[in-house]
Amino acid sequence: MKHPYKKFVQFQFISMIAAISFAAIALIYGSLLIALFSAFALSLSFLFEGLIEWKKHNHVQFGHQLVRALIVLTIVSYLYFN
Rank of each mutant, 00 (worst) to 15 (best):
A24S: 12
F81N: 07
K7R: 12
G50Y: 02
A69V: 04
H57D: 09
F48M: 07
S77T: 13
N82D: 09
A26M: 05
F11L: 13
V76E: 02
Y29G: 08
L79P: 02
L47K: 11
S77P: 00
M1V: 10
I75F: 06
R68E: 03
L44N: 04
A18E: 01
Y80E: 03
G50S: 09
F8K: 08
S31W: 03
L79T: 10
F22L: 05
Q61Y: 13
V60C: 08
H59F: 15
H57T: 09
G50E: 01
M1F: 12
H59V: 10
S31I: 03
F37P: 00
Y78S: 09
Y78G: 11
Q65L: 14
L32E: 12
V9I: 15
Q10S: 12
F40K: 09
E49F: 08
Y80G: 07
I25H: 02
L36N: 05
S38C: 11
K55P: 00
I28K: 06
R68Q: 10
A24I: 11
V67T: 13
F8R: 08
F62G: 01
E53P: 04
L27K: 12
H57L: 08
F62E: 02
I14N: 03
F48I: 05
N58K: 14
N82T: 14
V76D: 00
S45F: 01
H57V: 07
A23C: 10
W54F: 14
E53N: 11
L27Q: 11
V72A: 07
F13P: 02
L70F: 14
I75D: 02
A35H: 11
I25D: 00
I20S: 04
S45G: 06
I17A: 07
S31H: 07
M16C: 07
S43I: 04
G30L: 13
